[in-house]
Write a protein that binds this DNA or RNA. Sequence first.
DNA 1: TCCGTGACACAAG
DNA 2: CCTTGTGCCACGG
Length: 116
Amino acid sequence: MRDRRFDRAVYRLVSRIPPGRVATYGQIASLLGYPRAARAVGSALKRCPPDLPWQRILNHRGGISLRANVSGMITQRILLEREGVPLQRGRVDLARYCWAGPRRRPAVKLPALGKL
DNA sequence: TCCGTGACACAAG
DNA sequence: CCTTGTGCCACGG
């Protein structure tokens, strides 16, 4: 332990979220294969490297989860709006701005689709 | 190694 | 909508 594998996996994935899109803590955890480790994702972000687009991670309701950190909440909102993600009533419309997940190119060529 | 700690999620009241 | 209570799990001390 002490090598922070999980944290680094989180950073790797979060760094792939494009500007203008967001993801939830639970979504990141699930994509990493630990559907119940949403909380650990939050802990990881708390210690994340300065260049990580941490602002793109929201709670499952599309809200900002920085606890009692007023300046942090403001910062996150500014950063999101700056890249085109608006908050309304304190929430981002996840149905609209949620990231689809990492794009996996097909490992093998798919069979022909046939007529269409 | 054991134990407390959360930038969470979800269900119930 | 808001308020608990419970489950969870990697980290750090």
